[in-house]
Design a binder for these strands. Structure first.
Length: 262
DNA sequence: ATGTCCTACACCGTAGGA
């Protein structure tokens, strides 16, 4: 089965492109981020017509995550535990009832800029909460995939010019340290396990011709529990999606798709 | 790595993300 993550940058502004990619990429599970709409505005009918069940945790204007699945969905968890006053829709975890079930979460980490500041402090707290949740999930010994926009450039090799990003919230040492905590717990970055090449990007800014110049960064990740990593066969970054403009403007992120043994 | 560009919302500009 294939599990994909994609920050769509508004599911409604991008609907024709989203439907086209859902059809052509043939993933069984999609973790979407930045749907930028409340649950009632999610294009449920159009997506269900393609054979997906939808779990949606929306928010007006900002954020919002969803999981689409060809298999039945149960056991939804909205929000990361640990900060009840957090009103931003950034985490949706579900059980995918495939023949060998998988627990899958759509994850949208805060950007964290400007740093230092309140937004960066929120990002670090959010990452700490994610590590806590990831740790608790390990105890179930389930196959778990935490897939999403981590707003973290894990290595200097994952960006065009490390000097440009050194002080940015996406690459600052405290950000990378928390990302590594996930790895030290036992979560595998699917890309690193099956590819690992430098300068393989998942995001190119809309500004300054970043796409044309290949000024990109790798910030969208599938993090796999040991039981999920055992089943990981391959990883693909759908780079061509960044240049697709026939159905409208592309998202600034592209899908990352992992293939797992059934 | 900046040549701002993009989105939503609401009012034709502003806020916010990246």
């Amino acid at each position: 089965m294939k599990i994909a993550t994609w920050n769509v940058n508004s599911v409604n502004a991008r609907l024709a492109t989203v439907l086209d990619i859902l059809k052509t990429c043939a993933a069984d599970v999609w973790c979407l981020q930045e749907i930028k709409c409340v649950d009632e505005k999610f294009p449920r009918e159009e997506i269900e017509a393609l054979g997906f069940n939808c779990a949606v945790f929306g928010q007006k204007t900002y954020n919002g995550v969803a999981v689409l699945s060809k298999f039945r969905i149960s056991d939804e968890v909205r929000h990361l535990p640990g900060e009840p006053e957090d009103e931003q829709s950034r985490y949706l975890e579900v059980l995918i009832e495939s023949p060998r079930p998988m627990r899958v979460a759509s994850v949208y980490l805060p950007n964290g800029n400007p740093r230092p500041g309140d937004k960066y402090e929120y990002k670090l707290r959010w990452m700490d909460r994610l590590v806590q949740r990831a740790s608790a999930l390990l105890e179930t010994e389930e196959a778990v995939v935490l897939a999403g926009d981590y707003n973290c450039i894990p290595r200097d090799e994952d960006c065009w010019d490390p000097r440009v990003w050194a002080e940015d919230a996406l690459a600052f040492p405290a950000t990378r340290e928390r990302f590594r905590k996930l790895q030290h717990l036992g979560y595998t970055d699917a890309f690193m396990a099956r590819d690992g090449r430098m300068q393989k990007y998942t995001f190119w800014d809309y500004q300054a011709g970043a796409w044309q110049k290949d000024w990109g960064i790798r910030i969208d990740h599938l993090m796999c529990s040991p039981q999920a990593a055992d089943r990981l066969k391959s990883i693909a970054i759908h780079r061509a999606a960044r240049g697709m403009d026939t159905l409208g403007k592309p998202s600034d992120h592209v899908p990352v798709i992992g293939a797992f043994a059934d």
